[in-house]
Design a protein around this nucleic acid. Structure first.
Lengths: 339, 339
DNA sequence: TACGGCGGGTATATCGATATACTGCCGTAG
DNA sequence: CTACGGCAGTATATCGATATACCCGCCGTA
């Protein structure tokens, strides 16, 4: 391993000068020829600064942690990609902290916030934000949330979920559906609330009835969605919705499975639109109409903002610029004629 | 941030003693009461060693990099989970290096191997292994490959791909298929070769003809598989295979799409089995019969071995213990009666 | 009485980069 | 002839943990 000392020795300058040349310290005055010599030697020797050493001095490791509730959920892959991209631009690396459950265990705290190896936290896990904020208090670790916004945090990137929900309802209403159920998420997170509000507002804009039996708060898992779906579909025809809007991808899959079990056809008997898009949805049975949100953009903006935060610049609350889009596939059809 | 100095001061010992107590240095002789005092103070103050500082001295950062060809491929998610699990056991964190392409760009080299921030590399990307090995030569960075084995590398974890292929062929042959095509991977990687060999051997064990037109080398992408699938299905009925075995998940999806475009039904007109399983396959049209490989185990073993390698213990070539399993879904059916 | 050994620690260099204060020299102005 | 300012760098402390060499006092023994 070539160290700065080697570079300095070969270039015939002190390590201080070598460091200052390579870091382009504006307060250094040095002859152009010396400057070039140092650069050339560094190049020749293939010098790369040791980030661990520089991290010790500067308290910048060039690493950020991403905290996700469930990295197995394929809907996050775009986000991760966006984060990676932004991180790479700034020569950061990304580690993802898999929560494996509703909370982060102490071992994870330790590795991700207490040992000084992370420069900042990008948190996409609404339910642990407050706990996390408490942990990092006074520790000067910047934290930015994505996908949800909390008053206890200064920076966040969220998407226009309400419009996403609205798009789903508009689409279904346009197909003549009037009984549109919502397989929702938890009411205690702000994403959940925004998606819910979008649904409710759009329903009322279309003068559609909102039956409380049609709004089923779930927990974002396929399993729960399946159970809720069964309950919904077991309703007598007369009260049964003709369309369902699911709050996320696993919920859609759960509902799809429930419909299949109940012997109901999508979209023949019931239409389905889901929030969260993924290429795999082109291959499902049936291909699912979905709302595409700018997940990649959210990740990218979040990572960028977090890195700015690490550099001491203020973070703020922003909303992605790209609007949600409805990707029409084959899980939605005109409402059936019912009694 | 509490440092070791603080702990030492509060405990009334030197930093050397504090460090040695906390690290359980066996050569240290110290009274039990002092030992306890140091421990208690560390606990009270919430002391966590700064990993950046200790990393500088010990050249152990507690971080490993995973190099994947395409982290978007959902088939890897199990593997990543296994890696995470093993890493967590040893207090390591994991960063994933997304290659975004057929090779790693220089910026990536830098961040992942040249700056001293990684303790080791876990590589699941056969085509860049040699390049990587050359880069780390003499740098003392341990490298373990997973999913493929190379002579230039001392440690690897592979799976029994050949048996996986065999399972696929056995299943299809058992259903009466005789014309079984193979939508393969690249012939220049050892995984590709093993999967291929398994197919070929199983075919010959069943006395089935291997038509070279039925072995299509692809590149593991959905796009290519789709094109190859079209070509295969455009063959006249008489020469067209009645079953296809695809080498990985994206290939299966590509083939499925090709069949749909060609108006052929799976499994009515052609059966499909794919290597690589994922829960989502229960939701595809049709649900795909797949070979489940112990991807999680492979990741876990690989990470564990790599970490042992970091600790100076020798690495070796191992094969996962769990055998491949066929998950029967609905993309396979008895062979149609053909002329 | 001298000496060695051991219990119970301590002092310090080190990892590699960086930040800050400082120095030597030269030319020029007063 | 001296003072001063600027140019071109240098010396060194520091980040926090760790590894190694060392030290001091006391006890037992020859």
């Amino acid at each position: 391993m070539t160290t700065l000392k080697d570079v300095a020795a070969h270039a015939g300058v002190s390590v201080a000068t070598a460091a200052r040349v390579l870091n382009e310290d504006p307060t250094l005055s040095v002859r152009p020829v010396t400057r070039e010599r140092v650069r050339a030697v560094a190049q020749d020797l293939g010098y790369r600064p040791n980030r661990v050493a520089s991290g010790l001095r500067t308290r910048r490791t060039g690493t950020i942690a991403v905290v996700l509730p469930d990295p197995q959920n394929i809907a996050w892959s775009d986000t991760l990609r966006g984060i990676e991209r932004a991180a790479a631009e700034h020569e950061y690396v990304v580690v993802v902290a898999d929560a494996h459950g509703p909370t982060l265990d102490p071992q994870q705290w330790s590795r991700f916030v207490l040992e000084g190896r992370m420069d900042g936290l990008l948190v996409a896990f609404a339910t642990v934000v407050d706990e996390l904020v408490a942990q990092i208090a006074g520790r000067g670790l910047p934290l930015v949330t994505i996908n949800s916004r909390s008053d206890n945090v200064d920076g966040s990137v969220t998407m226009d979920d309400a419009t996403g929900s609205r798009l789903a309802v508009d689409h279904l209403a346009g197909l003549g559906h009037r009984r549109i159920a919502f397989l929702a998420g938890r009411g205690d997170t702000d994403v959940g609330r925004r998606r819910h509000a979008g649904y409710r507002d759009a329903m009322s804009d279309h003068d559609l009835p909102v039956d409380s039996a049609w709004i089923l708060p779930g927990d974002y898992t396929e399993r729960t969605a399946r159970a809720l779906g069964r309950a919904l579909l077991d309703m007598p025809d007369i009260g049964r919705p003709t369309a369902v809007y699911t709050v996320n991808l696993p919920s859609a899959l759960g509902f799809r499975a429930a419909a299949a079990e109940a012997g109901l056809r999508i979209p023949g008997d019931v239409s389905l639109v889901t929030m969260d898009d993924h290429p795999i949805l082109a291959h499902t049975d049936p291909p699912l109409t979905a709302i595409q949100l700018p997940m990649g953009e959210m990740g990218e903006l979040g990572a960028r903002m977090l890195i700015e935060g690490v550099d001491g610049r203020p973070v703020r609350h922003v909303v992605t610029a790209t609007p949600p889009r409805l990707i029409e596939r084959r899980s939605t059809a005109p409402a059936p004629m019912l009694a």
